[in-house]
Simulated assay, not measured.
Amino acid sequence: MSQTVDRALRILPLLAEGPANLEQVATRLDVHKSTALRLLRTLHEHGMVYRQEDQRYRLGARLFALAQQAMETLDVREIAHPHLLALNEKIGHTIHLAVYEEGEVVYIDKVESRYPVRMYSRIGKPVAITVAAVAKLLLADLPEAERRSIAERLEYPKYTAKSTPDAAAFLTELLRVREQGWATDLGGHEESINCVGAPIRGADGRIAAAMSVSAPNVVVTADELLKLRPLILRTAEAISREYSGNTVSKDTP
């Protein structure tokens, strides 16, 4: 990277901390004021920074517009898929990726189990919203008033004896999921199928998608599947870092 480009890029994180004057920018870059001024003028011409009336500089509207445009064009499925494949190679179980759209939680990707027993699910199909781990994660991230509104207008089919019985129980479960940062469906939809889910977050920290690992009891028990939770969470965090553009490593408890 050229020295000029490097210096210009270093100005942006500085201004992200708050407005700064020419002297502050020059000091941070360890350059003469004339050099700092030339860089700031170039960035100003392109809308990346803005000079205020008090002669301090702040980030410009063009930069925010570009960031928003970039976020809108990101495809979480494209980013997540290699990670889901890698996880499937390690554990062999079915993996789903889902998003919340227009009142439904829908699968947008699936990696099949390598075991003979397969799950009946397909991309584009809505999930059982009151019991699915991915649905719990996506709804748990919504504001409280919206969570309550959704919970109160849902129906609660009794798929199994472990299915969520009513809105009160569902809201309690969503609060637990929100606090712990992961979710399960242990026989709530099908008695023989267990599932552990983890959130995928965007740059704003909100949950943009959710992934889950599912397996039948004949392959692994619920306790055995739950032991994979740290690995599932690490995979979700790796996807989140790439999706949000945050490449800083973070340990998973």
Rank of each mutant, 00 (worst) to 15 (best):
I79C: 04
D185P: 01
L9F: 04
E173P: 00
K162N: 14
I150T: 09
G92N: 06
Y115P: 11
D185H: 01
K110I: 14
L154N: 07
T160H: 02
G103H: 07
R241M: 09
A135M: 10
A198H: 05
V99E: 11
P165V: 04
E144M: 12
A151I: 11
A208L: 14
L175N: 11
A8L: 07
K125N: 14
T184Y: 01
R58M: 07
A236P: 02
T252P: 01
L171D: 07
I91S: 03
P230M: 11
S113I: 08
I11R: 01
T27R: 15
G124M: 12
A209I: 12
C195R: 04
R41S: 07
L59M: 06
S163C: 04
D223L: 13
G197V: 05
R114M: 14
K136E: 06
I207S: 10
V127L: 15
T160D: 02
D30H: 10
V5F: 04
L97H: 02
Y159L: 08
A16L: 13
I200T: 06
I123H: 12
R118K: 15
I108G: 09
L15V: 01
R206H: 13
L97G: 05
A236G: 08
M48Y: 11
R28G: 00
K125G: 08
L139E: 07
P19R: 10
I200G: 06
M1P: 03
L9E: 04
T27Q: 15
I129D: 10
S192D: 13
I232A: 02
P82C: 11
H96C: 09
L39S: 00
S113T: 15
L233Y: 04
L39T: 00
R153A: 05
R229A: 13
